[in-house]
Amino acid sequence: PDLGLTQLFADPNLIENLKKNPKTSEMMKDPQLVAKLIGYKQNPQAIGQDLFTDPRLMTIMATLMGVDL
Rank of each mutant, 00 (worst) to 15 (best):
P1S: 13
P1A: 11
P1F: 02
P1H: 10
D2G: 14
D2S: 14
L3W: 15
L3H: 13
L3C: 12
L3M: 14
G4R: 15
G4V: 15
G4C: 10
L5A: 06
L5T: 06
L5H: 07
T6C: 12
T6I: 14
T6L: 14
Q7K: 15
L8V: 10
L8Q: 04
L8H: 06
F9K: 02
F9C: 06
A10V: 08
P12E: 09
P12C: 04
P12I: 07
P12R: 05
P12H: 05
P12N: 07
N13G: 08
L14V: 09
L14E: 02
L14H: 02
L14G: 02
L14W: 05
L14K: 01
I15P: 01
I15W: 04
I15H: 02
E16Y: 05
E16D: 09
E16G: 05
E16I: 07
E16Q: 09
N17R: 13
N17A: 12
L18V: 02
L18Q: 00
K19V: 08
K19M: 13
K20H: 10
K20Q: 12
K20R: 13
N21T: 03
N21W: 07
N21C: 06
P22G: 04
P22T: 05
P22R: 07
K23P: 02
K23A: 13
K23L: 13
T24M: 03
T24I: 06
T24N: 01
S25H: 11
S25C: 08
S25V: 07
E26N: 08
E26R: 06
E26C: 07
E26D: 08
E26T: 07
M27E: 02
M27S: 03
M27G: 01
M27R: 01
M28N: 00
M28P: 00
K29V: 04
K29D: 09
K29G: 06
K29F: 04
K29M: 09
D30Y: 01
D30L: 01
D30G: 00
D30F: 01
P31R: 06
P31V: 08
P31A: 09
P31C: 05
P31I: 07
P31Y: 06
Q32E: 14
Q32A: 15
Q32I: 13
Q32P: 03
Q32R: 11
L33M: 06
L33T: 02
L33Q: 01
V34T: 04
A35M: 09
A35Y: 05
K36T: 07
K36R: 10
L37K: 00
L37E: 00
L37G: 00
L37C: 02
L37M: 04
I38G: 06
I38C: 07
I38R: 09
G39N: 15
G39W: 15
G39E: 15
G39K: 14
Y40R: 01
Y40G: 02
Y40M: 10
K41N: 13
K41T: 15
K41V: 15
K41I: 15
K41H: 14
Q42E: 15
Q42H: 12
Q42S: 14
N43Q: 05
N43R: 04
N43I: 03
P44G: 06
P44F: 07
P44L: 10
Q45Y: 06
Q45V: 09
A46L: 14
A46M: 12
I47T: 04
I47N: 05
I47H: 07
G48A: 15
G48H: 15
Q49N: 14
Q49E: 14
Q49A: 13
Q49S: 11
D50A: 06
D50S: 04
D50K: 03
L51F: 12
F52C: 09
F52N: 09
F52M: 13
F52H: 13
T53Y: 09
T53V: 09
T53S: 14
D54K: 00
D54A: 00
D54F: 01
P55W: 10
R56A: 07
R56P: 02
R56D: 09
R56Y: 05
R56I: 09
L57D: 00
L57S: 02
L57H: 01
L57W: 11
M58F: 12
M58A: 11
M58T: 10
T59K: 08
T59Q: 11
T59F: 14
I60S: 00
I60V: 07
M61K: 03
M61L: 14
M61T: 04
M61S: 03
A62G: 11
A62R: 06
T63L: 14
T63P: 01
L64F: 04
L64N: 01
L64G: 02
L64P: 01
L64D: 01
M65N: 05
M65E: 05
M65C: 07
M65Y: 07
M65A: 09
M65I: 09
G66R: 05
G66V: 07
G66F: 07
V67N: 12
V67T: 12
V67F: 14
V67H: 14
V67Q: 13
D68G: 02
D68S: 02
D68Y: 01
D68R: 02
D68K: 02
L69T: 13
L69M: 13
